[in-house]
């Protein structure tokens, strides 16, 4: 069970360490059911840290977002660690970054928080109405209860308010951590990719129409890229003008090309944390594309990203007997 005292004690110890630069965790937000990422630099700040079903942010993104300033002449580079609080899915993002050597193991101190699933704020808003005053939530024996600002408590069965990615989650416990805050939770989910199979069985015209409808609303805000813990290229094709891989025009053709390219760049790398879908302001079902590639990778190459730090990246490795049915 979630033990906030333990969390804060560990956080305090960690931040006090000489070899830790800062700690990234979650703290109560200022609006509704939101929780915001919190960068703790001094032991005095740890009391605002929290862990609840509202902590949907994947903090592993921040590992690679850190600005890398040039080191002044005569000074040593700062090699201190970044302490990071991770849920199961976040830890897989860290592992995948380790696989790709985006970060090294020495750069992070991983504080694992076994998680019983985070809520989808849209589902919560539907049930409780959009909150304005800060509210809190907690897991209570199979239910998620919300402590509303007016003092009332409302509880819902987990299945009703959990995010879709959590309902099918197979890795609620961190796969890699330096310290686990509390006991591992029981795995509840299984994933048969029913939604992907259903769409896949349609004709090309129907699929094209479905996705054109979704992609036509894309506003090219690139939130999906910015929030993705796997999208950390310093030189992104979307920003590059010479050569122009992706045109910036906001029309359905270019949006389709952008979405296909984005999804392809996550092939064999997406760890299904669902952040892209959560932040999408126009509700494009991005996980539906990502999960398709995840499914293919899992079936064709028996590979799952973000599990074993020793494994090689999918597209940087091969087996001579890989499937090649479609090749003439």
């Amino acid at each position: 069970m979630v033990d906030l005292d333990k969390l804060r004690t560990v956080a305090k110890e960690t931040v006090s360490r000489d070899d830790v630069k800062y700690l990234i965790g979650w703290s109560q937000g200022t609006f509704g059911y939101r929780v915001s990422p919190h960068f703790v630099k001094t032991p005095q700040e740890v009391d605002s840290l929290t862990f609840s079903p509202l902590c949907s942010n994947n903090l592993a993104t921040y590992l690679t977002l850190t600005e890398k300033l040039p080191v002044p002449r005569g000074e040593e580079p700062d090699t201190r660690k970044v302490a990071l609080m991770v849920k199961g899915c976040d830890s897989r993002a860290v592992v995948q970054q380790l696989i790709e050597q985006g970060i090294t193991r020495e750069q992070v101190y991983i504080i694992g928080c076994p998680c019983q699933g985070v809520v989808d704020l849209q589902k919560v808003d539907e049930k409780l109405g959009e909150g304005v005053e800060p509210a809190q939530a907690s897991w209570e024996n199979g239910q998620i209860s919300f402590q509303l600002p007016d003092g009332k408590t409302e509880a819902f069965p987990r299945e009703d308010v959990l995010a879709d990615k959590c309902i099918t989650c197979r890795y609620p416990n961190p796969v890699l951590s330096d310290i686990l805050l509390w006991d591992e939770v029981e795995v509840w989910g299984s994933d048969d990719y029913e939604d992907v199979k259903e769409l896949d069985s349609k004709s090309p015209e129907e699929k094209w129409a479905f996705w054109q409808d979704k992609f036509s609303s894309c506003i090219r805000c690139y939130s999906c890229r910015n929030v993705c813990p796997m999208c950390y290229c310093e030189d992104c094709i979307l920003d590059r003008l010479n050569p122009t891989w992706m045109f910036r025009s906001n029309n359905v053709v270019e949006n389709t090309a952008f979405q296909v390219a984005r999804a392809f760049h996550l092939a064999g790398r997406c760890i299904e944390c669902g952040e892209c879908e959560r932040v999408c302001p126009v509700d494009i079902p991005l996980m539906k594309i990502n999960r398709k590639l995840y499914k293919e990778v899992r079936e064709k190459y028996e590979f799952e990203p973000g599990l074993d730090p020793e494994s090689k990246p999918l597209q940087a490795s091969y087996r001579p007997d890989d499937e090649e049915d479609f090749i003439l």
Binding site: F210, I289, L293, F326, L328
Partner: peptide, 29 residues
């Protein structure tokens, strides 16, 4: 070509999924 095989297998699946007819993209040895 081993790397290419993996890449284009996935790319083909993806194109098919967004509604590009699979008969438009081919790979051959």
């Amino acid at each position: 070509n081993y790397y290419a095989r993996r890449r284009f297998t996935l790319m083909r699946e993806l194109l098919e999924y967004v509604g590009v007819d699979p008969r438009r993209f081919h790979m051959s040895w």
